[in-house]
Nucleic acid binder design. Structure first.
Lengths: 194, 194
DNA sequence: TTTTTTGTTGATTGACGAGTCAATAAACTT
DNA sequence: AAGTTTATTGACTCGTCAATCAACAAAAAA
């Protein structure tokens, strides 16, 4: 039975299963056994490859982050104008992918974890800086010296809109969030703050 | 020992202790015993008065919400102009009170809970609607028909700014958040969207 | 004064879960 | 063929915790 080179396959399956289980439970209150079963292996194997629950969680968070990063990168392909760049980032951020139960669960619990687990906070910092930097590339040609503050505000607005879309009753509406963020941009660009 | 009329006192102590313990742990991963000890009683008594862990959590969340509500109401006292009203709401939302560890912990876990616990989602809806309504009173004289959308955006921005202040390294800076939210307002008011 | 209501706890139950370990087995090395 | 590395699990340990209960204490009602 034991085929060699299983490690990356098992790890990937465990990460996927972890995200799925967090999404199902809506919290980090999931057992290693549940995760392992979902991934089709014994809990001992999960411990063998990850060493503990927290490492598994962090790997899962990291994965969610990298999926998001890939989505943004994809949306940025072939974009030429600064405005289109911002819009692409917004659309990627509010795409249906990110409204899936598992992804939502991962993000919300990510925030909770970031309070106390340094590695989680580090990952979150990477996400925030990357978003900021991506926005800045588009904003600088449009807003010049104000680009920095604008990017901070827009970043926060994105997080806030996501939170609200995700926790409201009824299905989330990504388009509305995009529209709101674009309105923010537009009105801030109309008049270059002196 | 048993003095009568203890129920409200004990309940209040338990709610306070619950918030403190959630803040300490940064998560809902706190035991009833920890909470009860912090409140100076046996865990059995906590069960006696609240019937279970979840009810305790919800009571704690509810309490955090009502403290915030009271703070906003207080800040609104004596405010006359629409602009001052918005500013007051922002200052109350980003006051040092709300940056205390316990309050932060309560809010972040509140979001997590709102995914799956209907009562938590209900409470969150109340908060969001109350904030929106408070903002609207100030926005309508300033923005007329656009007040609704403005309030939605501003509400999301407040949540997002809070999230970022709270999860960044270093001490949170309420003033910066207030400034950012006011900039949002100002630029949206400069030109009445057609 | 007896009874009832209210407050209170220690001890217990019953369940569950993280992490460890010894053992098994296939593949690869020498 | 013997030894080593990699994969894999069932069984076990040790701890924890929510919830229950019987029992005790004091005040209020009867």
């Amino acid at each position: 039975m034991p085929k060699l080179g299983m490690e990356p396959i098992r790890k990937a399956a465990l990460v996927k299963a972890t995200i799925a289980e967090i999404g199902r439970a809506g919290s980090l209150d999931v057992t290693v056994s549940q995760i392992a079963r979902q991934a089709g292996m014994s809990s001992a194997l999960a411990h063998h490859y990850f060493g503990g629950k927290e490492a598994l969680f962090l790997a899962a968070m990291s994965h969610v982050l990298s999926l998001y990063g890939a989505e943004v990168r994809g949306a940025l392909k072939g974009v030429r104008t600064p405005e289109a760049r911002i819009t692409a980032i917004l659309q990627a951020s509010f795409s249906p992918t990110n409204f899936r139960r598992e992804v939502v669960g991962a993000w919300l619990n990510f925030y909770v974890l970031a309070q106390t687990v340094p590695e989680a906070r580090r990952l979150l910092g990477i996400y925030q800086r990357r978003l900021r930097s991506n926005l800045l590339v588009g904003l600088r040609p449009l807003a010049g010296a104000q680009a920095g503050e604008l990017a901070d505000g827009l970043g926060a607005l994105i997080d806030g809109l996501y939170l609200r879309e995700v926790l409201k009753d009824g299905p989330p509406d990504g388009a509305a969030a995009v529209a709101c963020a674009r309105a923010y941009l537009k009105s801030h660009l109309k008049e270059p703050t002196p």
